[in-house]
Design a protein around this nucleic acid. Structure first.
Lengths: 146, 146
DNA sequence: TTTGCTGCAAATAGTTTGCAGAGAC
DNA sequence: GTCTCTGCAAACTATTTGCAGCAAA
């Protein structure tokens, strides 16, 4: 989609801004993050790139994902099972629905979220900076399959 | 508080139910989880127990925390930075507010949560089983300190 | 040319496991 | 007495780092 193309350009712009060199490996990682098809893990990104870059090292993927994350252009989603998945397409916090069977992750857009954040701020006296909201369940496809 | 005493008994009951032996180490871990003062990490639990059980092994803490968690009597809170903290006092999913400076974790009770879960179910077709909701920010104490 | 990036391999951190002896029931 | 649990150490996994050569600007 055109959307991911725009995201890629945004990430590249941010990299240039910070005087980072645009190596082929880095651009490839950025491209996958920009698309974020299925919210890939580092391992997934690595596997996707191995074909195009046979000498590609896992460490390089880690370094570039971390770099892009630290520039605020990718969202890290850490899960209790220790797996980390990334979203460079919507790099701001947003709710997800995760299927506990097929591990599919769906982005959500919830109306009540703004109010909820305010409620938290009022209740706790916290200055809320960010949040993490995941709903775990069984997607309709997996439910049919069972 | 009396609350944590009750929780401890509930955990012990569950352990017996599952034919688990009540070793002193296991009871000590259960007691700390029942209280869950500050939502302790495995490391924290270990440190608290080292005085009473000088030979206590970290592995034993891990094993017992995992056991109690798997019996549904403790909630695991995994964070992006890789740290895990546990709540055996309220072992069901509930929202938290986490101070990004002092790492304090506060339990929340949000009115809008039920509606939100329903909204997600309707929007996605998922059968929601559980959720994870954390708000990160700066607590009033840390804000004053700055 | 300069500086940062990559690939490799080794290091690290957090967690898990195998095993033999100890202890709960 | 039986069978699970514990402590220790080793194994493991995911991630990070040091270094020498390579490549982008």
């Amino acid at each position: 989609m055109a959307d991911s193309q725009q995201r890629l350009e945004a990430i590249i712009a941010r990299l240039k801004e910070n005087d980072c060199k645009l190596t082929p490996q880095r651009l490839a990682v950025a491209a996958i993050l920009a698309e974020s098809e299925g919210h890939p893990s580092v391992e997934k990104i690595y596997e996707q790139l191995k074909d195009d870059f046979p000498t590609m090292s896992l460490a390089t993927v880690y370094r570039n994902v971390m770099l892009i994350k630290s520039l605020g252009e990718a969202l890290e989603l850490a899960f209790p099972d220790g797996s980390n998945r990334y979203d460079g397409n919507k790099p701001y916090p947003h709710p997800h629905a995760i299927c506990i069977h097929c591990k599919t992750i769906i982005d959500l857009d919830l109306a009540g979220l703004q109010d909820l954040t305010k409620e938290v701020a009022d209740e706790t006296g916290f200055e809320i900076v960010t949040h993490r909201m995941d709903f775990f369940g069984v997607c309709s496809a997996c439910r049919g399959r069972k």
